[in-house]
Each structure stands twice: as structure tokens, then as C-alpha cells.
Write a protein that binds this DNA or RNA. Sequence first.
DNA 1: GTCTATACTGGGATAGAC
DNA 2: GTCTATCCCAGTATAGAC
Lengths: 188, 188
Amino acid sequence: MTTRDDLIEATRELMWERGYGATSPREILDAAGAGKGSMYHHFQGKEALAQAAIERNSEQMKAQVGASLGSGSSAVERVRAYLTRDHEAVMKGCQFGRLVQEPEVIDSPALRTEVGEMFAWIRGQLAAVITDGVERGEFRADLDPVRTAAAVAAALQGGYVLARAAQNAAVFDDAVEGVLALLEAARA
Amino acid sequence: MTTRDDLIEATRELMWERGYGATSPREILDAAGAGKGSMYHHFQGKEALAQAAIERNSEQMKAQVGASLGSGSSAVERVRAYLTRDHEAVMKGCQFGRLVQEPEVIDSPALRTEVGEMFAWIRGQLAAVITDGVERGEFRADLDPVRTAAAVAAALQGGYVLARAAQNAAVFDDAVEGVLALLEAARA
DNA sequence: GTCTATACTGGGATAGAC
DNA sequence: GTCTATCCCAGTATAGAC
């Protein structure tokens, strides 16, 4: 019972650091303190284990994002809460974003779907908040919620990329503050 | 003479598709129509070959971005030219952005520096264009060029990520148009 | 310069004992 | 359920012939 859980947790940790392809079952097993048999008993293989790890990440992410986007009176404040919520370890990148780049992940229907749905959900949530802001007259009436939501979500993802490339978390903050300033400029 | 070149071109192609870690010398050699000896004659190893490939990508990228950012009368038009320039194969992602996620790349000083400088250069170019726009009164005087540049560059990178996750290039366009609309809202 | 053959390592997965 | 031993394959790199 707990071994299965240890495997999932170890996989989450390692996949965040190394991605999917570069995370070997050997490392997972060492980290979880389990033998090879355990993994293949509880899961069909590496892919199934990774899927379980991503599913758990999704649950946590949805809870966190949902809380952020619900905390604030104005739409801009809610988006700000989302963009500035504790991004533990900016330099490690986004748990989901980093997986997207890997061919192995994209080629796996199970993994790709999991990751794709997460991002689609986030864009939907952001669009809802922005639509609300437009309807309440906070934003200009001609602001496109779907495109704006995509831009906000993209700025966050790109912020991770730029910060990692520069090896400097301040670049992440620049991107986030930059897009927030632009969003405030779109107020009615 | 030409073998060395074929190796670099094959590496560029494959690294764009699979990244660094997942690109094997075997594949490169096959694609270049060369034998194992050739590669180790011209380059110290996989890493040195990858560095040569990234260097060549940098040159091309700088030429393209420089042309885009110089083509237009207003600052917004220049940024638009940059964001909407032919991003051949949006779904393949950014040649540089995808490398950033890989631990193997980040852990290699040679490769990491190459990629980091590219992004720093782009942010600098964008900041210069936006500074120009502020000084000419096109943008609000309180618009922060550095942060805005980071936001624009991040939206582009994130657009790649979101489009790939959704397996839909339209999401990239949404992110790009979204950030451009915000930028227009920041006009003086 | 370029090839083929080979060495060595580590990957994912299975078999069978406990 | 879990472990150890083992298999097969692919990765990077080297050696030595041409």
C-alpha cells in the first residue's frame, strides 16, 4: 500500500528535476527504497507510473490554481494571485511545461492527454476570470478573454523558460510583472 | 570539408525535433550519411557537435530577429513583426526554448552559455525597441521596457509550450495576439 | 579523412525464488 | 508483494584498418 505511494512520490520528484525520458526506473527505485519487482507489480511499467505521478500533480495544481484565482476582489488581483503564487523553485520550471517539450511524452497518448488537459483547464479558468472582469466593466469591453488568458498563461510558462536560460529567477519576475502591468493598462 | 557541415546540419535538424539528450550520434551519422569515425574526427564528441549546431542556429536567429525588429515604423509594429514572423513549425517549438528544459544542457557550461546568451540578446533587442517607443511618446511614459520585453519574449516562448500541450497551433496565435492587444492598450 | 568493429555502460523489462 | 538475477537493446566512445 505505502510502497505504491512511495513510488509515485519519488517519480513526481524526479520527473520534476529531470523530466520523463531522463528519469530512469533505477533512480526511482533507489529514491523510493524499493526493488524492481515492486514497480512492475504495482504498475505496468515506467509510463503507467509516470501517468499516476502526473495525475497527482494535476490534482494539486488544480487545487492551488483554483485557490489563487478565487482570492481577490478584482480580476487583475485574481490574475496577480495566480501569477505570483508560490512558484516553489522557479529555476526547476513548471512540472507540466517541462514535459511538453519531450517527444516521448507527446508521443504517449496517456501522458500527453494528461498534460494537455491541465493546460486547457488553466486557460479556461483564466478566461473565466477575465470574462468576469470585462462584464463587470473592469476591463475594456473589447478585451478578448480567450486570447488574453492565453497570453497570461504563456507569459508564465515563458517566464520559467527565460529564467532558466538566464539562470536567474529575476527574469521570471520581470515577465510576470511585465504582463501584469500590461493587463492593468487594459483597464477600462 | 562538407562532411563536417553535413554533421552540423543533421544535428540542427535532429536537435530541433528531439532535443539534445534524445538525439543520438547514431541518428546524426545516419542522417548525415557519415560513419562514426567522421564525427569523432571533426568534433570532440556529441557535446562539441551540439555546440556547433547551436552556434549556427544563433547566427540565423539573430539575423531573423534583427530583421523583424527593424521592419516597421512604430514600436508595436516592430514587436508584431517579431512575434508573427514565420515561426516555421510552431508545433516543433523554439529551437532554443526546448533545450532550456534539459538538465544535460543546463549542466553543460558550453551549451548553457550559448542558449542563455541568445535569450539575453533577444530580451535586450526587445527592450531597446520598447524604450524607443516610450521615448517617442508611443507608449505610456510609465511602461517599464525591461519588464515588458521579458513579458513579450515570455509570451512567445509560452505560446510554443501551450500550443504543443494542446496539439493545436491556434493556441500559439492566441497568446501572440493576446499580448499584442495588451501592448496596444499601453499606448499613450 | 573515413570506415568497420568493438568495448563499455546503462536503459527498460522479465523470470523465478522468497 | 517484494527481491535478485538476468536478458536484450541502445547509448557514447575508442581502436585500428583502409
